[in-house]
Design a binder for these strands. Sequence first.
DNA 1: CTTCTGACTGGGA
DNA 2: GTCCCAGCCAGAA
Length: 109
Amino acid sequence: MNFFERVYEVVEKIPYGQVATYGQIGWMVSGAPHAARTVGWALNGLPEDRINEVPWWRVINAQGRISNSRARHGAAEQRRRLEEEGIIFDDTDRTDLSVYQWNGNTKEA
DNA sequence: CTTCTGACTGGGA
DNA sequence: GTCCCAGCCAGAA
C-alpha cells in the first residue's frame, strides 16, 4: 500500500460534518509529526475518479482554513461543500476546529 | 545516487 | 489579527 492510498483511506473515514488537518492525517498514516506537506501532496495527486469517493474537502490546515487555493477544484468549491455539511466559516474563512475537527475515531465521537 | 517541489506547520515580524 | 521564512516527509526527475 502506497502512502497515497493510506492517505485516501484515512480521508474516506472522516465523518460527515467533520474535518481533519493535514498534520493529523500525516500523523495517522505515517506517524511523522510533520508529514502534513506530504498529505497535501498526496491529495494533489488524487485521481479524478476518486474525487467523488474521497472527501478531500474535509481536509484543511491546522489554522482551520482552506489552503487549496492552487488546487484544481479551488477553495471556493471546498468551502461550498463544507457549508453544505453544516460547517460554519468565520469572517476570516476559518472554521472552529475545537468543534469540527475529527477525533480520528470512525466508530464513536 | 542527489535535487526539487508541494492542497503544511510553527514561530517571528 | 496578517505576512514571511525555514523545516519537515514522501515521491518524481
